[in-house]
Write a protein that binds this DNA or RNA. Structure first.
Lengths: 265, 265
DNA sequence: TATAGAGTCTCCTGTTAGGGTAAGGTCAAT
DNA sequence: ATTGACCTTACCCTAACAGGAGACTCTATA
């Protein structure tokens, strides 16, 4: 039997950590003195401690580790979990690498004594008098990550009802605030026919900017548009909408072209 | 002036986030109605919000971002911080990559239906009757990461006092528990001369295992040694110590050879 | 056997960056 | 005047512990 201090010394887990693992039921001492509350571990528990430490380095959460320990006989489960972690780690590395690239671009800008927010000045804003469309649309509260799924629904409707698209698809944003899991959005396709499910979309005069690349730059575009509207003494007049010039199914994210429109007066 | 909801929609920061940033003083609304408590932002603050979001993706903490914003005129400071982050990210990526490699090795073991903790069985333990040494030593509470620094101090003492080393340097661990920042360790060098600063080190009979590679495997070695001592009905008799067979200054981490000794009876 | 000092106990608070929810006040349009 | 959308504060919750206080227990020595 090892006291908690001895166990700590051997396993290289701190006292705090061991007590915490006891509390959450991850690694309970083999024996706890009911009177004094002293914890006593046996030697074989050191191996469990080692396993926990190892899984921790692989970025498993303690909850995940607990599940693995409880089902330690189930090697298949363990293998699956390990492979999932492998994918997670690989993904993390790619994410970090692309972050690093962007960061290095910014550092380069700084070294050339340019403004790091300078890319904002390169966003070009045009005043357009948007056309009137006959649209087939669907307004829903959706999770932004399911965006494409809902669009596909609408696409299939166009096909099955044999309607004739007349311009690129668009999305109208009704959401008052930004909550990614619950976006109030109306997806629409301009079509030739006027059936009872279609309606007329006529935003009037608009400020427009073009987004090329990742959706992450959307707040920049919005910022720029708002600043422009204020500078030019216009006022927002209706809900913003976006027109998708490229097909997200076949276009790489960095080549996406999306036009952002703000109706103004 | 933008209400918090409008500002949220444009900046893609949630209401909670904006209120939190107000609370911690990272991004305070340009105007707060004293009566109603309503927050109002102006358009130019959108750009600050964008900057914050961007720095967040680079893994700056909100505290760090705050410092950057406060000293926004100080481009040198910003550049330094950015370069530090760049290093951090690069390091993270190398760490993750080496983790991934280890994880993949483990997965391979699993696929060969071997025990993932099997490496423990390959640790070889020998019973040795350790020699008696005359040692020059220094016992201190140190941070484990400063280990080498303290060793170098002792080395220089050997040189300046013109003493004659007679065996590899060693470290004796007195710490009762594991607290990396506060390790009670005695570093020592066996020498020929017996001066008044030296003492005799005579651990007696010991169980010994050899660690090759990273220090991370130390808990495994300790675990194995303790299990071995129990199995063979010995008892610990004194404080463990380590002998450094390779020079950490000139040896790659993965080629380090360290002998771990547990005095027993 | 008494005692000192090392070891251990529980309990409480703090950390990051907000999320969730409740109860209530405010704004703008009808 | 009312309604419904919008906004407010306040409280509790997250993961994986760290730090510290105050009290209890164990063990080695005198």
């Amino acid at each position: 039997m090892l006291s908690i201090g001895e166990f700590s010394k051997i396993s290289h887990l701190t006292l705090k950590t061991l007590r915490y693992y006891d509390e959450i039921g991850l690694l309970k001492p083999a024996f706890t003195d009911a009177k004094s509350g002293y914890r006593y571990y046996n030697i074989s528990q050191l191996e469990t401690a080692l396993l926990i430490s190892r899984l921790k380095t692989y970025l498993f959460s303690l909850d995940e580790i607990k599940v693995i320990l409880i089902n330690w006989h189930d090697t298949d489960l363990f293998q699956v979990k390990m492979k999932t972690k492998q994918e997670n780690l690989t993904q993390q590395i790619t994410i970090y690498s692309s972050l690093l690239k962007k960061l290095e671009l910014d550092i380069q800008l700084l070294e050339e004594e340019k403004n790091i927010m300078g890319y904002l000045d390169q966003i070009d804003i045009k005043l357009v008098d948007h056309l009137t469309f006959n649209i087939l649309s669907q307004r829903k509260q959706i999770n932004i990550s399911d965006f494409l799924i809902h669009f596909n629904e609408l696409f299939s409707k166009v096909v099955f009802e044999k309607l004739t698209p007349t311009a690129k698809p668009l999305a109208i944003f009704h959401s008052a605030e930004y909550v990614p899991e619950n976006y109030d959005v109306e997806i629409a396709i301009p079509i030739v026919e006027a059936i009872n499910e279609t309606k007329v979309f006529n935003p009037g005069i608009c400020a427009m900017a073009t987004l090329i690349g990742s959706y992450d730059e959307l707040p920049s575009i919005h910022t720029k548009l708002h600043a422009w509207i204020e500078e030019n003494h216009y006022k927002l007049n209706g809900t913003p909408f976006e027109v998708y010039q490229t097909d997200p199914h076949t276009t790489l994210e960095e080549h996406n072209i999306i036009e952002i429109y703000f109706p103004i007066k």
